[in-house]
């Protein structure tokens, strides 16, 4: 059975006691084999969404299907199709890595003969072979996360949910995990729903990104689309002869409005119709006989997208380039 859409969500709501609407009417669709990045600040509702989609929490409203099954009514079928690594690892401190694999194999109903082989194979894949016979309470934070991931993969799920899988991992482990996620999606056709607070992660890894804030999705699309939607790229240009600045400015004027340049003696223009205009710009400069010392194209970041949609910056305000990016401190934001 193949599904056009691995995950289909319409008007999903989850309200907690006390009236917190952690998920407040979201719509999203994830195609089979796609890596979907779910991006948002602390408390945005990422984990709650994951819990509802993985049948750990019943929705309070709306509809969601995963692998074609309704999460509220066909929980067992959903669970059989998915693998999940939650934000807080779910490990038993008393069990070793190998025993965890054995337990998970039993829970997933994997034939006995196959359990040990698959368990060993996955432990190897996440680099835990050497620690396989140690109790998980002796593992480091990163090792625990990797074991958790291996457990999520044991039964070859078609859809994988990873809630902040790289939080707490060192750079090396993070890159290894990215490679593994790519491999799963590209080679095995696994659908991956991945939440993250890291812009870079969503940008590098995800085919499509949904940005959630305070329970609602504020933007969705491929990283490139999103960036193109909100913030146009700027081209920055430094003439070899500083005296040519004003001529250059006139030559670039038709392409967009001028903005503040990052380097001295440069002019910058926000491109009205995207990076496609680059060739025309070069031609125009050539035509005006202006010698180029430096030409750079600045793509907008996902943070620009978030900023445009919510008026706040997703990453630390210090990284921001413009004054308006200095966001008011948010109650639920924790310093990274």
């Amino acid at each position: 059975m193949t599904h056009e859409r691995a995950i289909d969500v319409a008007g999903l709501v989850r309200e907690f006691k006390g009236g917190v609407r952690a998920v407040d009417g979201i719509d999203l669709h994830v195609a089979a084999g796609e890596i979907y990045g779910f991006l948002g600040p602390n408390g945005a509702g990422k984990s709650t969404t994951v819990k509802v989609l993985t049948t750990l929490l019943p929705p309070s409203g709306g509809r969601a299907t995963v692998a074609g099954f309704d999460v509220a009514r066909e929980g067992a079928k959903v669970r059989a199709s998915i693998g999940v690594a939650l934000q807080d690892v779910a490990l038993d401190p008393m069990l070793t890595g190998r025993e965890h694999m054995r337990l998970q194999g039993g829970l997933q109903g994997i034939p006995r003969a196959e359990r040990a082989r698959r368990g060993a194979e996955l432990l190897d894949r996440v680099g835990l072979s050497d620690a396989a016979d140690r109790r998980s309470k002796t593992y480091s934070g990163g090792m625990k996360r990797r074991l958790d991931l291996a457990l999520a993969l044991l039964h070859n799920p078609r859809i994988l949910f990873l809630d902040e899988p790289t939080t707490g991992l060192d750079v090396q482990s993070r890159t290894a995990l990215w490679d593994e996620v790519e491999r799963l999606a590209r080679q095995e056709g696994t659908t991956v729903f991945l939440t993250t607070q890291y812009l870079e992660e969503a940008d590098v890894l995800a085919d499509r990104v949904g940005i959630i804030d305070r329970g609602t999705i504020v933007a969705e699309g491929t990283p490139a689309e999103l960036k193109a939607q909100v913030a146009k790229p700027t081209v920055e240009f430094t003439p070899r002869d500083a005296g040519q600045c004003s001529i250059a400015a006139a030559a670039l004027a038709p392409f967009g409005e001028p903005v503040a340049a990052r380097r001295d003696g440069s002019i910058a223009v926000r491109l009205e119709s995207g990076a496609d205009q680059l060739a025309d710009i070069v031609r125009a400069l050539d035509h005006a006989k202006i010698a180029v010392a430096h030409l750079a194209l600045h793509e907008p970041t996902l943070d620009d997208v978030f900023l445009a949609k919510t008026g706040r910056s997703l990453e630390g305000a210090a990284d921001g380039g413009t004054a308006e990016e200095i966001a008011p401190p948010r109650r639920d934001r924790v310093a990274a």
């Binding site: 669970r79 939650l86 038993d92 998970q104 829970l107 997933q108």
Partner: peptide, 13 residues
């Protein structure tokens, strides 16, 4: 301590 989620996620019934 959250381990039960592993069980809840894996068990069809």
């Amino acid at each position: 301590f959250g381990f039960a989620r592993r069980l809840l996620l894996a068990a069809p019934n």
